[in-house]
Amino acid sequence: MSTATYKVVGMTCGHCVNSVTEEVGQVPGVTDVNVDLATGGLTVSTVADVDDGAVRAAVEEAGYQVAEPANLLAGASGQTSGCGCGCS
């Protein structure tokens, strides 16, 4: 079992969380997805090594971005205005 943590940029509501959870949950081998709206945190557990590219692609498919390591300390800097799910 393996676990990886990411920072998702652009989520502003519960629908955003559901979209990311659903898309990442469909990545083969993923056993658990935990998304924290307040921090943008995404924790992914898998049966084998986490397929980083597949997780990032799933987040993008949901309409959001994974912050690069250099952006993690800056929080949501560079975030565009409006909700990624289109609700606002």
Results as ranks from 00 to 15, higher is better:
residue 49 D to N: 11
residue 76 A to K: 08
residue 41 G to P: 00
residue 23 E to H: 10
residue 69 P to N: 09
residue 64 Y to M: 03
residue 49 D to F: 04
residue 31 T to I: 10
residue 16 C to T: 00
residue 41 G to L: 10
residue 83 C to Q: 04
residue 59 V to L: 00
residue 3 T to I: 10
residue 77 S to L: 15
residue 76 A to C: 08
residue 82 G to M: 07
residue 64 Y to D: 01
residue 2 S to Y: 12
residue 41 G to Y: 04
residue 29 G to K: 06
residue 52 D to M: 05
residue 37 L to M: 05
residue 26 Q to K: 15
residue 77 S to T: 13
residue 73 L to R: 14
residue 37 L to A: 04
residue 3 T to G: 07
residue 50 V to T: 13
residue 26 Q to E: 14
residue 35 V to E: 00
residue 51 D to Y: 03
residue 25 G to V: 08
residue 59 V to H: 01
residue 18 N to R: 14
residue 83 C to A: 05
residue 14 G to C: 04
residue 23 E to G: 06
residue 73 L to D: 14
residue 85 C to W: 00
residue 87 C to S: 12
residue 26 Q to Y: 11
residue 38 A to W: 02
residue 39 T to M: 08
residue 23 E to Y: 09
residue 13 C to E: 04
residue 70 A to Q: 11
residue 44 V to C: 03
residue 21 T to Y: 01
residue 48 A to K: 13
residue 18 N to H: 12
residue 64 Y to I: 07
residue 47 V to G: 13
residue 21 T to N: 13
residue 70 A to F: 14
residue 88 S to E: 15
residue 60 E to C: 07
residue 12 T to D: 09
residue 81 S to K: 13
residue 67 A to Y: 01
residue 78 G to M: 04
residue 21 T to H: 08
residue 40 G to R: 00
residue 24 V to K: 01
residue 40 G to Y: 03
residue 34 N to E: 14
residue 72 L to H: 12
residue 59 V to F: 04
residue 61 E to V: 09
residue 80 T to D: 14
residue 77 S to C: 12
residue 17 V to T: 09
residue 77 S to Y: 12
residue 1 M to P: 10
residue 18 N to W: 11
residue 45 S to A: 13
residue 40 G to W: 02
residue 78 G to W: 10
residue 2 S to F: 12
residue 69 P to Y: 06
residue 64 Y to S: 03
residue 78 G to R: 11
residue 34 N to V: 11
residue 83 C to R: 01
residue 31 T to F: 00
residue 64 Y to N: 04
residue 9 V to Y: 03
residue 10 G to D: 02
residue 35 V to R: 02
residue 4 A to M: 11
residue 54 A to D: 03
residue 12 T to Q: 13
residue 47 V to C: 06
residue 32 D to A: 13
residue 61 E to L: 12
residue 2 S to K: 12
residue 66 V to N: 07
residue 31 T to K: 11
residue 41 G to I: 05
residue 45 S to G: 10
residue 87 C to H: 05
residue 74 A to E: 14
residue 63 G to H: 08
residue 18 N to I: 05
residue 68 E to L: 10
residue 5 T to G: 13
residue 88 S to G: 15
residue 86 G to I: 05
residue 12 T to H: 14
residue 36 D to T: 13
residue 63 G to E: 03
residue 66 V to M: 09
residue 74 A to M: 14
residue 24 V to M: 02
residue 29 G to D: 10
residue 32 D to L: 08
residue 48 A to R: 13
residue 65 Q to P: 01
residue 75 G to W: 11
residue 29 G to M: 06
residue 44 V to A: 02
residue 33 V to L: 05
residue 6 Y to W: 02
residue 38 A to Y: 08
residue 53 G to W: 05
residue 30 V to A: 06
residue 4 A to V: 01
residue 67 A to H: 02
residue 49 D to L: 11
residue 16 C to Q: 07
residue 42 L to D: 01
residue 8 V to T: 04
residue 4 A to T: 03
residue 6 Y to V: 08
residue 69 P to C: 03
residue 37 L to T: 05
residue 5 T to D: 10
residue 19 S to L: 12
residue 13 C to V: 06
residue 27 V to I: 06
residue 31 T to S: 09
residue 84 G to Y: 05
residue 22 E to K: 15
residue 30 V to W: 07
